[in-house]
Design a protein around this nucleic acid. Structure first.
Lengths: 344, 344
DNA sequence: CTGTTAGCGCCTTCAT
DNA sequence: ATGAAGGCGCTAACAG
């Protein structure tokens, strides 16, 4: 008994032959946007495909059609066990529409995103969704914009999530407003001495959230000095470390606003690890699901993630516009245990 | 000014023409496993590609080569915000090897997996990794095995993660052993009255973990009656609900073993929500990263996830074997605050 | 080292 | 409703 070696996969032609029809008919029966195939033939083709273990060669199909069906999501940096509300939302939204979903993960480096987008373009998907905040003045932005522009010119659809300000359809959140509202909420609870744990200096998302927060405080007559804004890398671990640094500075702080929930959890855990949890309030932003299992429950700005993803795909399947549209999704503050009201 | 309409994407031929070389040379310069291209020509090609915004059409490349580069991961059901240590591990492992990574998500229904695998086959990736526990006697298993067998015959590589017992290379964990060790650990801490929160009745993973736990108790002279094993659907929310049911039964329970950490968190949160957290100990399985931010910190069976993924890809790139290999990854119990020692 | 020539598997006019 | 034929973009022999 000799090793037969790799057998070639069954092709459409094989199916057609076995079914006694032409390849064209088999194609129509199997993947046809077309309707016209006699029922008897369709059945024969389906049966032949089944018995041969035939699977459409999607690559070949994409070549022939010029475009691959479905949506490709490019996510930047997948930290923390993939906990990523956007990804989860886009997966479901795509599923709901029957669109094949593909994910491409980019590294955390700005240049990685450009590379990942290039790879994604290579797949020629109908819809390309890009997520992950960009630096506000990032040298790679022109390259990114150019790549995406090309992609649209070639007939693909591009939607950005959370990337305000680029010339494409985008779904963004009211980051500034959320920060602003959070400041008001915390002041309303009685806090006066704040610190902010933020991400990369020029990241728009964190910058907007921070600015909104600072503005909100200002409207309450509270000025946040620069040394009370600590900058890390947008991750839970960075926030954890930063909190230590903050406390070492020995300034009076009774509430910390972290620009996202992951970072807020890092803050919370640090405080707990060092026994300071009771003394300092913590607030976050995003309202990720993981918060359900954390104590104290975390005050945060809730964002309707499913709606974000849904809106993104809705834009992608809508007729093309001449000018890009931006949808801003509003969030709202949810006060929980991590920021109890305090008296003075 | 008239709408130019969709422009076609730049093709290899366009690049070649602009660079003044043949398509073959352009191909070699851009994507060649081949070495032989004069430096001057290579530079011209690269420059032409850049100026045209050219991206390799991966689909066409896959058709021509007969196979797409990279690894495709099929995951079953992405609950809880994608928190999934296997996915995270495979992403990094693939990145480390420079392999393009693609994810296809299947629904939670068994039939969905077969469909997802079929879609994945359609992409013709070099490496196909399948994860997500299967029921031990699931009607769709033959279809799954047949599809994967086809795939291997066609020259693809298949690796299963956590799916012991199917005729393919697989990486599994010592589930039974982990459950067994956990039983011993809990008994050693002084607990005597147990309950188990488990997933689908016939899922192998949860079954093995449960059986190991029961066996471990038995070796300590403790018999776990059937009414102390509650069955849900392997999710955090199911565990949350099940815990309520358990307490309503009014049997004495001082420790709950949940067959994975997500479920354990559901248990923990339920107990907290109802004020019973102090009375009942909780243990989980997996040691997911989210545990870092939870209180009380959760006793669990640690599994080295990066190693799991690393091993899976190592198997996939290794020379073919005549018979499938199985690697069992060992875990170990980590005792944390959720199971404090108790006296009698 | 480079160009020419065949395909890869599928889809899609265009006839019939 | 069906088949024949050409083409999608790229790569792999095969010369030279």
């Amino acid at each position: 008994m000799t090793d037969p070696g790799p057998v070639r996969a069954a092709r459409l032609a094989d199916v057609a032959r076995l079914a006694g029809v032409s390849a064209a008919t088999a194609s129509r029966a199997l993947n046809g946007s077309d309707r016209g195939v006699r029922e008897a033939n369709r059945a024969k083709v389906l049966e032949a495909a089944r018995s041969l273990g035939y699977t459409t060669n999607i690559a070949a199909q994409a070549v022939a059609r010029g475009r691959a069906r479905g949506v490709t999501l490019v996510v930047k940096g997948m930290p923390d066990d993939f906990a990523n509300p956007i990804t989860a939302g886009v997966v479901s939204a795509a599923e709901r529409r029957g669109l094949p979903f593909t994910l491409i993960s980019a590294g955390t480096d700005p240049a990685d995103l450009v590379e990942a987008v290039s790879l994604a373009r290579g797949h020629r998907p109908e819809i390309l969704v890009i997520t992950g905040g960009r630096a506000s003045h990032d040298a790679t932005i022109p390259a990114l914009v150019e790549a995406l522009r090309h992609y649209e010119e070639e007939g693909g659809r591009v939607v950005l999530i959370s990337q305000e300000g680029l010339p494409f359809d985008t779904v963004a959140y009211a980051n500034r407003r959320g920060g602003y509202d959070m400041a008001n909420a915390l002041v309303g609870l009685g806090y006066r001495n704040f610190a902010v744990i933020s991400g990369m200096k020029h990241g728009r998302t964190q910058r907007d959230r921070t600015e909104g927060f600072v503005a909100g405080l200002a409207d309450n007559g509270i000025e946040l000095s620069a040394d009370r804004i600590l900058i890390g890398d947008f991750s839970r671990d960075a926030a954890y470390a930063l909190t230590g640094e903050l406390l070492r500075r020995n300034i009076e702080v009774d509430a910390v606003f972290a620009v996202n929930d992951s970072m807020a959890l890092g803050v919370l855990t640090f405080l707990r690890d060092t026994g300071d949890a009771r003394r300092v309030a913590v607030a976050g932003f995003d309202d990720i699901k993981a918060l359900r299992d954390v104590t104290p429950s975390l005050t945060t700005v809730h964002l309707p993630w499913d709606q974000v993803a849904e809106e993104a795909l809705a834009m992608a399947v809508a007729p093309r516009h001449d000018t890009p549209r931006t949808t801003i999704i509003e969030g709202h503050v949810i006060v929980r245990e991590s920021t109890p009201p305090i008296a003075h």
